[in-house]
């Protein structure tokens, strides 16, 4: 049994709740309610008329089946998978290479490393504006560079063959900084004596990397991949400002398709259904990660 509290204690406990009332209200308004609303929309026939009248009908799984039957679903899902896996894999490899490079301390190393974070901090519209020019067809820098090695100009953003690759390149460029920063701070916590021991055992650079660095970075890499997955899945600005999913849905992701369904086609229920899939995928990853982590820290 809990001891009885005096009225003073009870008041103090209530006063403490005041610290979190604002945040609870705020998060309920901008996350809790919208997520619930979105779930509700998934089962409603909500269109432009409903927007004004506020009246919509329960349609069961109609929105979900409509979305799944739409040929755009398969291509958007496939594009999202390619976009996510390619972005994460390549930005991880580049981030790791840079983290290892900046593990060396040399004049200006800190300042240079700091500046490398810039692509991650700038407004996405500025990044895409810059890249729009680099990918300009046919005279942009990307094509000039290809010209040097004798490859004819590529249509980059305006061809359905290369639009997805182009936005992946830009997304990788944005994500390198995140990988670099996390891996670099992870490297700092690898005990130096382990490297020395491995070196005494005659391990070369690659062997030390494989058997000392990588295992020690395990937890950091796990966080990085989970967050990378979640952030990449959410990516919207990049595609919307550059290709709006085109040409011909060739760079359509689930995120941009959801937005198109809601705001261009006024099929709010179907847009909501697609958004649910995205959220579900992220939530599953986070929950699995949390469970695995808890299990490991208990073991």
């Amino acid at each position: 049994m809990r001891p009885r509290r005096s009225s003073y204690q009870r008041r103090a406990a209530l006063m403490r709740l005041l610290f979190i009332v604002p945040v609870a209200v705020f998060l309920a308004l901008v996350f809790g309610y919208p997520i619930g609303f979105n779930l509700w929309l998934t089962f409603q026939s909500f269109d432009l008329v409903s927007m004004i009248s506020g009246v919509s009908e329960f349609v069961g799984l109609d929105n979900i089946t409509a979305v799944l039957a739409d040929p755009n679903f398969a291509s958007a899902a496939r594009n999202t998978a390619i976009f996510t896996v390619a972005s994460i894999a390549i930005q991880f490899v580049i981030g790791m290479a840079l983290a290892l490079f900046f593990y060396n301390v040399f004049p200006l190393s800190k300042a240079i490393r700091a500046l490398l974070v810039l692509p991650w901090l700038v407004p996405s519209i500025v990044a895409t504006t810059a890249w729009r020019f680099i990918f300009k067809d046919p005279s942009g820098f990307a094509n000039q560079l290809l010209g040097v090695v004798g490859i004819p100009p590529v249509h980059w953003l305006t061809s359905s063959d290369t639009a997805l690759v182009s936005v992946i390149i830009i997304n990788i460029w944005i994500g390198i900084a995140f990988n670099l920063v996390l891996l670099h701070s992870g490297l700092q916590s690898v005990p130096v004596d382990r490297y020395e021991a491995a070196q005494l055992d005659g391990a070369g650079y690659w062997q030390r990397f494989r058997h000392v660095t990588l295992p020690a970075l395990g937890p950091v890499i796990a966080v990085l991949l989970v967050l990378g997955f979640v952030y990449t899945l959410k990516q919207f600005d990049l595609i919307w400002t550059l290709t709006q999913g085109g040409p011909g849905n060739s760079s359509q992701l689930l995120s941009t398709w959801s937005y198109t369904l809601s705001f261009n086609s006024n099929a709010f229920g179907q847009g909501a259904a697609v958004a649910d899939f995205l959220f579900l995928a992220s939530a599953i990853i986070i929950v699995v990660y949390t469970l695995v982590q808890r299990k490991q820290s208990n073991a």
Binding site: N38, F236, S255, T256, D276
Partner: peptide
Amino acid sequence: TQVVPGVMVATP
């Protein structure tokens, strides 16, 4: 909240 896609919150 960090994993909630913006497009999911956008419509509501």
